[in-house]
Design a protein around this nucleic acid. Structure first.
Lengths: 387, 387
DNA sequence: ATGAAAGCGCTAACAA
DNA sequence: TTGTTAGCGCTTTCAT
């Protein structure tokens, strides 16, 4: 599956059109023209075609489509009519060569993670009345963040928003010299790119205080697994600064456990997916004695996976409580009812784009935004059953 | 919120670099070079820079990066060294002007719909070992599908996969004259673009037979709402052919109800979102007498929303059963346990890309693929309580 | 207000 | 095997 024949190279896009003797392609006309309705790809109208047809210069057409200064109403009208008739669309690639592509890139480390979806929705909505188009570059392995970001940069996007906790800040600094960059979920201090992040420290503290107050003492931390994708990729590495969101959440967990003299227990999620988390949690539940009474999951997708294992084992919140992070939409579903930290993913997406547009508009000082968090207490956390 | 200052126009990307007197940008060197570490955006290396630095022609460099025929090992090595040192990256926009952009576009009508996420994952995975990058164009309103597709086309992607049930097939035919297109979830017969779709008819039949067999007679159909975004967008319209997936599911529902002489009851989901569906279902539950005993939801996101309303009202599957379509990941969660039709979203994503690559490789006959469906019976459907 | 012309970075004939 | 050259479609001075 997934094996593709190696005829991958696209057919040369060169049309047999050599007759450059003022031949208007007449693209978009309903009359199919002299060219048979065969299968050959038809060339579409260029700015030159429009200019010829309207009897003006390319420059004039360019001014019309850019709404630039210096066009008479009559010319504008004439040109616009031809544009409509020929169904002319400016080629973004050609524009990009001279300036901007009016495209913004968003890299997210996991398609299907609802937190990222919500963030992307915020970004998309914010761009609505803007001339910019957002494109998302999805990746398979969270470790490949730098590749996807680079790929976006190669495509001449005018700016990049990325969620990539593991990419080195040096590399990002270098990238940000070339193109405006806003990083989401990073707490590092860069002078070249902006950051937007939730307050991971405060959020994690709320969770731990809540669990402890409920009476839990045997609390496990369900972490994402960074050992995956161990290939020695040069620019990607395990965050050494401990400043990525999951490292912070884990540290706060350790601090609270330590303060109470409780032994920490970190379980590796073996990935980012719900199923990975369920698999990692399952063995914890076997033994009634050693079983934790609560699990603090690094993010909601892991938390939902933990709930999957717990429910499948016939246990409930009084046996094993679960708290997550992100407050993804399903968390508030009454049948899931997951206690979670709301870090305003939608607003994060909006703010990231706002900052990016600001930067593209000329701002040069770096801005760091931290969103406040709110603990949403729900049914998945309850006092532990006395044993 | 979301209101952005109108300094949206990107700063002109022209660097003040006028000294074209053989100045190598020396991009990517760790030594910051003579230029102060100020804020001006640095120009990055071009193929010309590499050629100059390596003492060869542009064509030679081009051949090296394209792995083309006719380069001596020595030259290749020399060029590659310079490429690495200068951190040279070919500009995709420039390449796109001469041929392909090595970018494939995926348009999905709703970011955050898990079925689309799974599909996108299949597409992404299939492209893994390929030189192509997938970019996703998200949209806010499902009605804007044509805009997003057009936007992708404007960006010179080499091919397009789209989920856009409401776009007219004429428009798509015209688009497909210019660029390879594969449509997902459409059952129409086009000679210019391919289609991949689940077997909506068979899937819906399985659902209805299952509900009826359980003993349900008062079955409602929870439909997406097509009245939204009523603005008269020229190329978008309510599918007149009745061949879009939701129209088919609804038709099968009507047929089964009619065959049993039962009165149909179609409820509008007022959108595609879970919350929309919950709001639409709530009023159905008020009156014990008129309350349906089962709901067939047009897709799983709506079904989960229905479950939200049902659970919030303190009811369960014996009061109101729910069946959905798509078998999104959360459906199998034991706390949700939603009966649903599996139409292999992941495989659909893979197949769509496979067909697209085939088409890009030269195939001209249209291919229509239909994926078989499987009903996953779970806890959300149960025999109705006797009243 | 309009147009001529240069050039963005790359690929693809074609020559050498 | 290598280099020269002509564009791809657009924006942008700079003349007119």
């Amino acid at each position: 599956m997934g094996r593709l024949r190696l005829d991958v190279n696209p057919a040369p896009a060169t049309t047999p059109a050599d007759a450059d003797a003022g031949a208007h392609p007449d693209a978009g006309e309903e009359a199919a023209g002299p060219d048979g309705e065969g299968t050959l790809r038809r060339r579409s109208a260029t700015i030159q075609d429009v200019a010829d047809e309207a009897g003006v210069s390319r420059a004039a057409v360019s001014k019309v489509i850019r709404d630039a200064y210096g066009v008479s109403p009559e010319m504008r009208q004439r040109v616009e009519a031809v544009i409509a008739r020929l169904d002319y669309r400016p080629r973004v690639a050609a524009r990009a060569m001279r300036g901007s592509s009016f495209t913004l890139g968003l890299e997210i480390p996991q398609i299907g993670n609802d937190f990222h979806s919500v963030m992307a929705a915020g970004a998309t909505d914010f761009l609505a009345e803007t001339p910019y188009q957002l494109v998302i570059a999805p990746i398979r392995d969270p470790q490949e963040g730098d590749k996807a970001i680079q790929s976006l940069a190669d495509r001449q996007v005018d700016g990049i928003v990325a969620v990539a906790p593991l990419v080195s800040s040096d590399w990002l600094d270098r990238l940000a010299e070339r193109i405006p960059v806003v990083m989401v979920g990073r707490h590092d201090i860069s002078t070249r790119y902006d950051t937007v992040a939730g307050d991971d420290e405060a959020g994690a503290e709320e969770v731990m205080e809540h669990l402890i107050e409920l009476g839990h003492r045997h609390i496990a931390f369900l972490d994402i697994d960074r050992r995956r994708g161990q290939g020695g990729r040069s620019k990607t590495f395990i965050s050494p600064t401990g400043r990525d969101p999951h490292a912070i959440r884990r540290r706060v967990y350790h601090e609270h456990m330590g303060a109470l003299g409780l032994p920490p227990r970190v379980v590796n999620g073996a990935g980012h997916m719900e199923e990975d988390a369920a698999a990692a949690v399952r063995p914890l539940l076997d033994d009634d004695e050693s079983r934790p009474t609560a699990i603090f999951a690094g993010h909601d997708t892991l938390a939902v996976g933990a709930l999957r294992a717990i429910a499948a084992a016939g246990l409930d919140a009084h046996d094993v409580s679960v708290a997550g992070f992100d407050d993804i939409p399903i968390a508030s579903h009454p049948m899931i009812s997951l206690t979670s930290v709301d870090q305003q993913g939608y607003a994060i997406g909006q703010e990231a784009i706002r900052l990016l547009l600001e930067r593209m508009g000329g701002r040069t000082e770096a801005v760091r935004l931290q969103m406040p968090t709110t603990l949403r207490v729900r049914g998945s956390t309850a006092p532990p059953r006395r044993r």
